[in-house]
Design a protein around this nucleic acid. Structure first.
Lengths: 266, 266
DNA sequence: CGTGCTGTTGAGGACGATCAATGACGGTGG
DNA sequence: CCACCGTCATTGATCGTCCTCAACAGCACG
């Protein structure tokens, strides 16, 4: 079996296939609409999408956005998988969030350019990223104020995800991993069962050692939740949700921020 | 460590005797001038402060803001100590943040009224709270746009605090507790050495059992960091910072959000 | 065919949870 | 003033989860 890495899915555009394949092959053939966490599709997004220009191809393992990044543009993941992380002083990697096609990268870093947090966005597979110039975004936001709501909503959801993770950090490793898997399924889309992450990456995000993560995987396989092969494939989503006591509401922006209008001054 | 302004903070004026004491006694005697992150000039804050009306006295242990709170007003802690928390299904309490006089309570809940997170703000001592009506706030924000930046900046700092806590959750208990104490010192102010929290509350926030928290306290006392009496009193702040590898930058709003303007529509 | 990354398995040990009981302190009512 | 009570702090003992170290197997890639 091929590696899981390199697989990405498209669930933004309606007609786009979301087939899984392996290793290093870039499969996303196009991306019609951006998908930020919590940003439901709307007519404004069409206008938004026109602002995006594909800028760069990023090799797997490279840093997309560095620690002291003061962005004059907003970065968007067009294709591939990435994560936001920091390094502990002992070298261990703390992963805060995974990003999939359509996600804004380090949104809070764009909204708060002066943040001194040593955050880093790293490509977990070969990626394509798009950028939106700050000036262009400014204009768009003036025409479509609700777009700003979406931006802020997405940032607030990032915070919700962090809070949620604080909760499960106090639970045993199996539930921690299970919850993380649930979250990825929810982010990836309804019919997605294959999670494009390695055990190492899941371990770094769940705060569990790689060895123990592997044992948890085996437990989950015995429970009939994960498939037997080397892939991270969920075969019993219902059971997984039960094990994790997962409630995906915290990922919904819903009508978040309704009534608010965000715009950019000069 | 420059300006450590705290989370969601409209902090008391500097000259005010806001000395805290141990569990049970709420001693903040007054609150004259608010202070908010990211706003150098205080003329906006004066206008802001006039909107606040003291509404209620909250008894220790009571809930200030319930889980499904859809606020038509913004709540502000005038006096006392409070915390934002959730309950685990087993009854354990997860504390996300402590609030001190001048802090906004559950700011994200105000910015995202539709959030379904079961968050709760609870009074840890007898408290006085103030409220700002949403309509009034709306008007004020239109006259003083930078206030909106402050609101959003404070919300983003809440997220930073959560992220930071995710980092230290992977470190041993002593450093976890030490870091939490550092954070409280930074939030309380420069000269404050007495932390108005019980070991139980610190345990619930640090994710350590109460028993083990007590043992950590004793270790910290042997290290000469905490005083010998039953109070949570820091006598060697420098050493505490070293133990925790604390860097308070993540609490700075700095010039966050400069260039942004937030206002409220209807 | 080596090299590197990921996944897998075993053994030993540390950290911290849990249970249980006691001490210290403040407040309350008799 | 004293007995009683509730909350918080403290201590000991036991046990489980999970980390660490170490080695090896499978697979992709040059």
């Amino acid at each position: 079996m091929g590696k899981v890495l390199g697989v990405c899915s498209l669930r933004c555009g309606a007609g786009l296939g979301s087939h899984m394949q392996h290793a290093g092959k870039a499969l996303c053939l196009g991306l019609e609409k951006p998908r930020a966490p919590g940003v439901a599709s709307s007519r404004h997004l069409d206008a938004f999408w026109k602002l995006v220009k594909v800028r760069d191809r990023i090799e797997r393992g490279e840093t997309i956005i560095g620690p002291m990044h003061r962005s004059k543009h907003l970065t968007l993941l067009v294709e591939g998988v990435a994560c936001m992380s920091t390094r502990h002083e002992d070298g261990a990697r703390q992963i805060y969030a995974f990003y999939y096609p359509g996600d804004f990268l380090a949104l809070h870093g764009f909204l708060m350019p002066s943040s001194t947090e040593p955050l880093e966005v790293q490509a977990l597979t070969n990626c394509f990223i798009g950028t939106i110039d700050r000036n262009l975004l400014e204009q768009a936001l003036q025409h479509h104020p609700s777009l700003g709501q979406s931006l802020w909503g997405a940032a607030m959801i990032e915070a919700s995800v962090h809070r949620q993770r604080l909760i499960i950090m106090r639970r045993p490793a199996l539930q921690r991993v299970a919850h993380l898997l649930c979250e990825q399924l929810a982010r990836l889309g309804s019919d997605q069962r294959l999670i494009p992450l390695s055990q190492i990456e899941i371990a770094d995000a769940a705060g569990v050692s790689v060895v123990h993560t592997n044992r948890v995987f085996q437990d989950l396989r015995k429970l009939g939740v994960l498939s037997k092969d080397r892939l991270t494939e969920v075969v019993d989503k219902q059971r997984l949700h039960e094990l994790a006591t997962f409630d995906g509401h915290y990922l919904d922006a819903g009508e978040a921020l309704s009534g608010w209008d965000v715009r950019i001054e000069g």
